[in-house]
Design a protein around this nucleic acid. Structure first.
Length: 152
DNA sequence: GCCAACGTTGGC
DNA sequence: GCCAACGTTGGC
């Protein structure tokens, strides 16, 4: 399997790119959507590229890239009753939710806004454009190339 | 702040 | 298993 590409969303007030740079490695926890979970559990692998997107921001935009440094493993925050992401249906024997670890790669010199993406015909098929709700989504190699060459 | 789109829940 | 009702996300 070759290298694959993804887009992860975060609200900058909840977890920003500078937070990732400070932490050096982030556990991408708290995803509670089955489509996104399937990607995290089965498809996202060490070495894959991640576009870091700010949702609910002004403007919404991609601010940089990150690198996957750990394959999917159970999201233990689901087991913690004190966590905002607690889910009593998930157990250590039968975990429901998964996460990966990422580290910062490059912070864009020029951030790419959602509006710019919508203005580029070759990016019109991005899930970001067509299903704005999915918080972990695949990106094609072509889309990755266009966006990173504009940003860096 | 509004609301469309989407995902999940639960009654049947 | 279907689908209506509800809750959430996130763009505008």
């Amino acid at each position: 399997m070759g290298k694959k590409y993804w887009l992860f969303k975060s609200e900058p007030g909840a977890y920003s790119y500078p937070d990732l740079e400070k932490d050096e490695v982030a556990e991408w926890d708290g995803v509670r959507n089955y489509t996104a979970r399937n990607y995290l559990r089965s498809d996202i692998k060490v070495g894959d590229g991640v576009l870091f997107y700010y949702s609910n921001a002004k403007p919404q935009r991609i601010v940089g890239t990150a690198l996957v440094v750990r394959d999917g493993y159970p999201d233990f925050t689901a087991w913690d009753p004190k966590s905002d992401h607690y889910d009593p249906k998930s157990t250590q024997e039968n975990p429901i939710w998964y996460m990966v670890d990422i580290k910062p790669l490059t912070r864009f010199q020029k951030e790419i806004t959602l509006q710019e993406i919508k203005n580029i015909p070759d990016l019109h098929d991005m899930i970001l454009v067509n299903n704005s709700r999915l918080s972990v989504q695949p990106v094609t190699a072509t889309e990755w190339e266009i966006i990173t060459s504009l940003g860096n």
